[in-house]
Design a protein around this nucleic acid. Structure first.
Lengths: 235, 235
DNA sequence: AAGAAGCGTATTGTATACGATTATTGAAGA
DNA sequence: TCTTCAATAATCGTATACAATACGCTTCTT
């Protein structure tokens, strides 16, 4: 599985740094990203920052507006729906590909992973969320299909962004039991069941985490209560 | 459907030009792409060419090797298989999404398109191939899912590359009758049948066009007959 | 003659420079 | 006090410059 793109090692580093920062929400959705300050912070010139922005924009993590620079993407609810729909389809492919083709070692590794998830359940630090996401990435890796892996990684990142905006604060995202069932179906080779489980698992994630759209992009929504409490009228 | 990425209009143009050139095989797989000469040819500086390369690399149309520049991607057979597998999965999603949701106008447009394909059948100029590809793109557009559209476009481009390398010279790619059947299934709302048809349709494309892997990347394969005809033995 | 070493050229990686566009601030006028 | 507009500051888009690396050719060695 060759990594075909390596536009210069430094540029790659900048890309990775920004990507992580966005996914971990150090850079919050909508936040402005000036080329100068970021380059200065990372010790590189605007050129490399720009290159990284290009890639991140393709992947939907940053938005590039002409002459107005870059900002962390702020997906609309419609885009969010699109992303989740595609994700379900992609991961169904993963499940179908893997069903009946898991080696013993792979099954064991997945079991172990779910064990970790279980252990970190409750304390909802970034740890728990990261583990739940990694489970899906590991599955995609096991298909041996590099392109499928890339797409799954991409939609996963975007899902992180989306949950940062619209997700409930303490949603546990992935139910451990659902992961366990899935592994079992993959092991027994029941492709249809595995696909079905995956589909419903992801559907459930959306329902659990996304059902409350606390999207407060509109300034008016945010300020309305303040206006009222101050006795100000609104047009 | 907002086009979220517009890294400068000129850069966009360079990207599009290169992309088209690659897909239409004016730039052949494996061909070296020096930043200088390309920039000169298109009347821009290396900066913009580089930006375009970045995007094309993400999409798998060019390969970027550190310190050795860019070249038109030359997918391996393994990568080709990956791309086709993912494409089948993606387009199955398209079929399932569209089944039973086609408006009359949309169905009519698809019919019209197939009419064009039929008309251009036989004379296998780039016209015929382009039309067959466009049919799938139009379908993806009709889902209204921007991300799904992007992915379908991406795998479609890469399929063009792959067929340029491994495809038969005059394969008619997409059978018109299969497109017709698919439209019918979409119209009647039979999602399972539509998905099935799409799957087999794409499988058939691979079989028809790709079955003869005339991939002569391996020097030994190329030279074997020469060795024999000259009475030379091979280890 | 085949291979290794060295040198010159071409090409890439990254930074910087400069004009163009957009945001911001402050002052003048209604 | 609120709006309008102009000047300034900040930021972007693109080209260019310079250092670093890789490629090809000559030359030397065995």
């Amino acid at each position: 599985m060759k990594d075909t793109r390596q536009p210069g090692l430094r540029a790659q580093s900048v890309y990775k740094a920004l990507r992580r920062a966005i996914i971990e929400q150090a850079l919050k959705p909508g936040m402005k990203l000036p080329e100068d300050s970021i380059g200065e912070q990372l010790g590189v010139s605007r050129t490399l920052v720009r290159e990284a922005f290009g890639r991140l924009a393709v992947e939907g993590l940053v938005e590039l507006k002409p002459n107005r620079g870059a900002s962390v993407a702020y997906p609309t609810l419609e885009e969010a729906r699109d992303v989740f729909d595609v994700r379900r389809g992609l991961e169904r492919m993963v499940a179908e590909t893997l069903a009946g083709n898991l080696t013993g070692a792979q099954a064991a590794e997945l079991e172990a992973h779910v064990g970790l998830e279980e252990k970190s359940h409750g304390r909802d630090g970034p740890e728990s969320i990261r583990l739940a996401g990694e489970f899906h990435i590991r599955l995609a890796e096991m298909t041996g299909n590099a392109l499928l892996l890339r797409y799954v990684q991409e939609v996963s990142s975007r899902c992180s962004l989306i949950l940062a905006i619209y997700g409930r604060p303490h949603s546990s995202e992935c139910a451990v039991s659902e992961h366990r069932q899935l592994i079992e179906a993959l092991r027994t080779g029941d492709g249809a069941r595995a696909a079905h489980l995956m589909d419903h698992h992801l559907q459930a994630v959306v329902t659990r985490a996304l059902l409350t759209p606390r999207g407060e992009r509109d300034i008016r929504e945010v300020l309305a209560p303040y206006a009222l409490s101050e006795g100000l009228t609104q047009p």
